[in-house]
Design a protein around this nucleic acid. Structure first.
Lengths: 232, 232
DNA sequence: CGGCACGTTGAAGGGCTTCAAGCTCTGTGG
DNA sequence: CCACAGAGCTTGAAGCCCTTCAACGTGCCG
């Protein structure tokens, strides 16, 4: 197992920190191991830690009053979960669920504040991270406001192709994650039944193949046309 | 007309800056006067300025490929428009439309960078601003994903009550802005017809009164129950 | 190999959009 | 000052997209 110090230096967020600051920071952090299904924190609890994802995959979900879960964002290695919340002192706006067994490193408030006060470039990195997240969130708002379910699902499959797509020998792309109909539904503000029907239809059209929690995109370009609402 | 220097010191974002830094910053900024209907910038153009709202009201809209507009956020005095974009070097993700004649102050990249490098607390303020915006965006995503139009409209009316509500003598609250059905539709991912029907229905129920671009909430509490999907 | 989570498919129906037609208010220029 | 153009609003009708409920497969894992 690498040291926290070694791990930090591999991520963009800490790229500008001088060695000494990195050493110091590493001393204040701790490993956190989490299994699929775990929650790092619960919606509404008070925020006192942020988490740097070293390996694995997680998502931030919000629970609605009538029991549905909505996926707000997902996190891969290099992402930080709960940073904005920690810095504004609010309680967590959602729950962080572990999708694949993950190694994380915890980040407490005080060392974070010290870093922000002493290392201006770190603040800029944080700003850029938040700006990117805001940008993503705005795109999802536009999609949810103006697009049909089909378009949104096509778009989220294409995003997953970028993030976790593995090219197959014959030109198709396999999504290298466990991905249930329910997951896709929560990512797109729809129901698992609608997702099932949509995927089944696309399968009959030859656009993709799907098994239990597993999708292989055969014709990415056709999905692009659907996402952009162009004629086939 | 007050000087830019005087104006800056009234806003939270600049509260931590020492006098000298404020002086310097003010020298690099310029007044920008904009009328209702103006666009500060267009979606897709390159970002080279951010704007501090001194007075007036604006909104950020995204245009969809099929000609609809979606309102992403609105801005009041003290808010900064385009800051995240300016700092990440992306092109503007939407267009900034002036809703009420506004006085703004422009903020260029270089002085902003200098400020971030020399004044750590300024970076923290920016982070908190972006975190708050991200929080708002996540809430809208949850609403768009899981709630019906009625709930979302009720919620946005209640938000407007907080922001621009003026208490009337008889216990009702008037929204002190021009607010068309179209505006509400773009804020809630629906159509002006649905907004019109919804408001008409609420008017027959005695929850509110509405005229052209003008709404008076008679029973805010009833709207809260609708927003939370509780029985009446 | 039994149980349970995941997935499929059908049927019914409701919420919302879309298209259409006509109304009302507001500001402006003759 | 009034008429009129146009922006804003209302209301109806048709129908589609999607949800909801329900019943039944299917595959994985302990």
């Amino acid at each position: 197992m690498p040291t926290i110090r070694d791990v930090l230096s591999t991520f963009n967020l800490f790229a500008d920190l001088p060695p000494l600051a990195l050493d110091n920071l590493a001393l204040s952090m701790h490993w956190h191991h989490a299994m699929r299904g775990d929650l790092l924190f619960h919606q509404g609890t008070e925020s006192n830690l942020a988490y740097l994802v070293v390996s694995g995959r997680l998502r931030l979900i919000q629970h609605t009053s009538d029991g549905k879960d909505v996926t707000m964002a997902d996190f891969m290695p290099g992402d930080v979960i709960g940073l904005g919340t920690l810095l504004t002192g609010e309680s967590y706006p959602g729950s962080a669920e572990v999708l694949e067994t993950s190694e994380l490193v915890t980040l407490a408030g005080p060392p974070l504040w010290e870093l922000l006060n002493s290392q201006a470039m770190f603040g800029v990195r944080v700003i850029q991270m938040l700006a990117a997240r805001l940008h993503e969130a705005h795109n999802r708002i536009r999609e949810l406001s103006a697009e049909r379910v089909q378009q949104r699902v096509a778009r989220s499959l294409l995003r997953l192709v970028e993030k976790v797509g593995v090219a197959d020998h014959n030109g198709s792309v396999r999504l290298d994650i466990r991905l249930s109909r329910q997951d896709l539904a929560q990512m797109n503000g729809t129901t698992l039944e609608t997702i099932s029907r949509t995927l089944s239809f696309w399968e009959t059209e030859g656009l993709l193949e799907s098994r239990r929690e597993q999708i292989v995109i055969l014709k990415p370009h056709a999905l692009v046309r659907i996402a952009d609402d162009l004629p086939i």
